[in-house]
């Protein structure tokens, strides 16, 4: 499944990222790398974006971006 489908308050582990070039690099610089745990914490009152907890920070991503991040839900790491 992709990150945008992750239910509220659920945790998942990133498996892979779509895309290439600077946009991909930008997501990776935020710490969104395969193997890292993410948690969907809050969705904007207008429905988009959603804020994800990544490596202790709260990062808001638009749905179009979250769709390019593949995750494996329900797995606890570390």
């Amino acid at each position: 499944m992709t990150l945008d489908e992750l239910p509220h308050d659920a945790e998942a582990v990133v498996t892979s990222l779509d895309g290439s070039g600077p946009e991909r690099r930008r997501l990776m610089d935020l710490g969104l790398l395969p193997g890292i745990a993410v948690r969907a914490e809050r969705t904007s009152p207008l429905g988009d974006p959603t804020a994800y907890r990544v490596r202790g920070s709260l990062i808001a991503l638009r749905r179009s971006q979250a769709r390019g991040i593949h995750v494996e839900p329900g797995v606890r790491t570390r």
């Binding site: 930008r26 997501l27 935020l30 990062i59």
Partner: peptide, 11 residues
């Protein structure tokens, strides 16, 4: 196109 962006919500 609208470009990729991320917004950090600081503590």
């Amino acid at each position: 196109e609208t470009s990729v962006y991320s917004l950090e919500l600081p503590p």
